[in-house]
């Protein structure tokens, strides 16, 4: 278990190092001189000013030195300064993160509860009408782009019915819940098809196994068979899929945030690309990679708790 953990952490550090380098180099290689963005007003561009800015942002150093300086800063929690907001990137990020994380948390609760329930219902009525309605419905919802779903929700529930606000992230706990409800639903709907399909598929496979038949042979009730055998044994793949979806969401709230005008990390990414605020872009990309990896590692660590056999396999590997 510890060996597994160490190996995964090692791989994570390596991937982070590589991806941070890729991100840094890509931005470094971007056409256009960052100095012009930094100074802003073209009238201020004088040779002295350029030299001063270059020295301030270490732009006069070779690439590797710049990367090392940047990486060192990142490790100390210094993500640089936003050219556009004239504010430390870490402050900017930490002011935007709560909205995104709350949104993802709410969406996750929704897609896990709804997705798994739909999958269970569909597995239990396999081949029946409920099954085809669920499969067809979720597949259709999955084919509608989520910004369209989001706008549809806004027009019905915010504009017509006025149950929810049109935009903004709200203040206070209740306000935030109310403001983020529609965005969370829009975000979650896109994952329902996947989660319910995986749940259904795994449960259908599990249903035919001998231990389920054996449980039936000694009179275990249908409900107990479903929960204790079929569903319980399907948890591994289902939890993995939910984890991967959640990880993807952490890096994928951009569209929804921009539809609902939420001041989260995703909309910050769009803004900073539009304003060429590269320090912010770098930091957000790094956050996204990190968040994705942390969640996938957590999923890997949970798996042996759900199915002890995997521990044996991964120890052998």
């Amino acid at each position: 278990m510890t060996a597994l953990l160490l190996r995964r952490l090692g791989a994570m550090v390596l991937t982070l190092a590589i991806s941070s380098f890729v991100i840094f180099v890509a931005i470094y290689a971007a056409p256009g001189d960052p100095v012009t963005f930094l100074i802003g007003n073209p009238e201020n561009i004088t040779p002295e000013r350029i030299a001063a800015v270059r020295a301030e942002y270490h732009l006069d150093q070779p690439l590797f030195v710049q990367y090392a300086l940047w990486a060192q800063g990142v490790l100390h929690g210094d993500l640089g300064t936003s050219f556009y907001y004239q504010q430390p990137v870490s402050e900017l990020l930490s002011s935007r993160l709560p909205v995104t994380l709350t949104l993802v948390a709410m969406a996750s609760v929704l897609f896990v509860v709804l997705g798994v329930s739909l999958g269970v219902a569909s597995a239990l009525s396999r081949g029946g009408r409920v099954d085809s309605v669920i499969t067809g419905g979720t597949t259709f919802v999955n084919s509608v782009p989520n910004f369209v779903v989001a706008l549809g929700l806004v027009s019905v529930f915010a504009v017509e019915l006025r149950w929810f606000p049109v935009a903004g992230e709200g203040t206070g706990f209740a306000g935030r819940l109310q403001h983020l409800a529609l965005p969370a639903v829009a975000l979650a709907l896109g994952s329902l098809a996947l989660i319910s399909r995986v749940t259904r598929q795994t449960m259908v496979e599990q249903q035919t196994l001998d231990h389920v038949e054996a449980a039936r042979s000694y009179g275990l009730g249908t409900w107990s068979i479903v929960t204790r055998h079929v569903l319980r044994n399907s948890l591994g793949p289902v939890v993995t899929m939910c984890g991967l979806t959640l990880a993807g969401m952490l890096a994928g709230t951009t569209v929804i945030e921009s539809v609902f005008g939420l001041a989260g990390v995703g909309s910050l990414l769009v803004e900073s690309i539009n304003t060429h605020d590269f320090a912010v872009v770098q930091a957000i990309l790094l956050y996204m990679v990190l968040a994705y990896m942390v969640v996938t590692i957590l999923v890997d660590l949970i798996y042996p708790l759900l199915d002890a056999r995997t521990l044996v396999r991964s120890d052998r590997a």
């Binding site: 597949t139 896109g190 994952s191 991967l244 969401m249 994928g252 951009t254 929804i256």
Partner: peptide, 16 residues
């Protein structure tokens, strides 16, 4: 959409 891209990837070969 690109939002769920990472997660969808895994299921894509399982053609319905």
């Amino acid at each position: 959409t690109i939002d769920t891209f990472g997660a969808q990837v895994a299921s894509a070969p399982a053609v319905r």
